[in-house]
Nucleic acid binder design. Structure first.
Length: 446
RNA sequence: CGGAGUGUGGCUCAGCCUGGUAGAGCACCUCGUUCGGGACGAGGGGGUCGCAGGUUCAAAUCCUGCCACUCCGACCA
């Protein structure tokens, strides 16, 4: 979707691998993102996304986009800068605090770098929609946000600047709004599952955005920032399939996922936990929040006068919800879930490349020719391939390949090529198999 | 926002206490030998020691101020 050609030669790429770990990186994902040349820190909590990292970011973003679209949300793009007046109208300008970056333009007009977009989307919505007949609507965008965190840390997991998908639903009343909420709930289950993650929806506090119904989606990881308590059976619940009917009744799915105990430490109820979950199924661990959904009712529509006419001709404020996914955070969270001592182990759907060719004897006529042929064939089959064509020793190439975590490694060296074969290695489990280049191509074409 | 630290070639760090010609490993360049799990030898290039003042014949080193960044805790996609 994003890379036009099907391949890349390492000699032309930009992959600044670090052999040693920069001292500031404490957790695995941060360490590996720096070492694998995915990101470079420019300031506290602010990162440049280097080509490999950017490739992953685009893969994640695209999965999020596809599942939002499938659930009926409509993409648009709002600016990063917003007028302070808009936030004064909703009453949030003074309430938001120092987390919000406030700036002035040359006319001394007050602006802010958006930490979220409820106010702006409400303004956009109210300017265009007058009737309940135009509802429901769900609008989303994928845009950079800035929150001036007191303490940014863990690399992109908690940056000040971060890429977020935020969706906003508009409905005529609470009952309708809950249907919109349920759609996003199901879309989130599918989104995270497609990235290979087990994200568990947990009852959550609503925080400064407000409202009275909210779930956080967390993936379990020891390095997570939130303590979580849940019934371990939630780990085995089925993910709604691709052909789930979003216009149908989603409540059975919601009920299934919300009836088992699952809560973050903020709202945890130990007595209830012990009452509802027998000891062998009690899971107490930590998690990384990768998404959150809210129903907040008329919190913004009332102060901002976002109203529509109902069937009775009477105007009423719309009922809203907002739905966030931390796209850039997910890049780190996925690494937390999938790595080993040697490096990253990308799940295929988010891998920056699907395959990597390692020419173990660069400059030798037979290996060079075999690699070129294979590289062209993979590209012809639309398989994103990184060809390691640098004049490095095999050991260095193995280390690089394991570090950057491309799912399939194809080792082309004199030893196996003597039998007319190449070696296909899976990064996830380290298994390797000798096969002809044609069979390797067939294996990857699945 | 409380607490604790760190700023020295691209990276990891030594040197600072006790002031006196800026160092090591990795990376980089050249040549040669190597080549299936981060090779070896020889030669070479690269640093206003975070910034600004001060003390001193002399400051990476001592003093003052500032800035940046990191880590531990309370808060958030």
């Amino acid at each position: 979707m994003n890379r036009v050609c099907g391949g890349m030669r390492l000699s032309r790429y930009f992959l600044p691998i670090l052999r040693e770990t920069p001292k500031e990186a404490e957790i695995a994902s941060h360490r590996l993102m720096l070492r694998a040349g995915m990101i470079r820190q420019e300031a506290a909590g602010i990162y440049a996304w280097l080509p490999l990292g950017f490739g992953v970011l685009k893969k994640i973003e695209q999965i999020v986009r596809e599942e939002q679209d499938r659930a009926g949300a409509v993409e648009l793009l709002m600016p990063t800068l917003q007028l302070a007046d808009l936030w004064r109208e909703s009453g949030r300008y003074d309430a938001y605090g120092p987390e919000m970056l406030r700036i002035k333009d040359r006319h001394e007009r007050e602006l802010l770098y958006g930490p979220t977009n409820e106010d702006m989307i409400t303004e956009i919505f109210r300017a265009a929609i007058r009737s309940y007949r135009d509802l429901p609507k769900n609008l989303y965008h994928i845009q950079w946000k800035f929150r001036d965190e007191q303490r940014p840390r863990f690399g992109v997991m908690r940056g000040r600047e971060f890429l977020m998908k935020d969706a906003y639903s508009f409905d005529i009343d609470e009952a309708a709004a809950r249907l919109s909420y349920n759609k996003m709930f199901v879309a989130y289950l599918r989104t995270f599952a497609r990235m290979g993650l087990k994200a568990i929806p947990m009852r959550a506090e609503t925080g400064p955005i407000g409202g009275d119904l909210s779930h956080e989606f967390l993936i379990l990881a020891e390095t997570g920032e939130s303590g979580v308590f849940c019934d371990e059976r939630v780990l085995d619940l089925a993910i709604p399939s691709e052909d789930v009917n979003y216009e149908g009744d989603l409540s059975p799915i919601i009920r299934q996922w919300t009836s088992l105990y699952a809560a973050t430490q903020d709202v945890h109820d130990q007595a209830r936990f012990e009452h509802e979950v027998p000891p062998p199924r009690r899971l107490q661990t930590r998690g990384i929040e990768v998404g959150q959904i809210f129903y907040f009712g008329t919190k913004y529509s009332v102060p901002m006068n976002a109203v529509v006419s109902g069937p009775d001709g009477v105007e009423r404020p719309i009922h809203g919800g907002s739905y966030g996914i931390g796209v850039s955070r997910l890049a780190g969270a996925i690494i937390e879930a999938f790595h080993d001592e040697a490096g990253i182990k990308w799940p295929e759907p988010v891998a920056p490349f699907r395959a990597m060719i390692l020419n173990l004897k660069q400059g030798a006529a037979d290996t060079d020719a075999a690699c070129e042929k294979l590289y062209a064939a993979l590209a012809a089959h639309g398989i994103d391939t990184l060809y390691h064509d640098l004049d490095e020793r095999p050991g260095a190439k193995f280390a690089t390949a394991d570090l950057i975590g491309i799912p399939w490694q194809i080792l082309v060296g004199p030893r196996s090529l003597g039998e007319g074969k190449v070696e296909v290695k899976r990064r996830t489990d380290g298994t390797r198999e000798l096969m002809s280049p044609a069979d390797a191509l067939a294996r990857l074409s699945v």
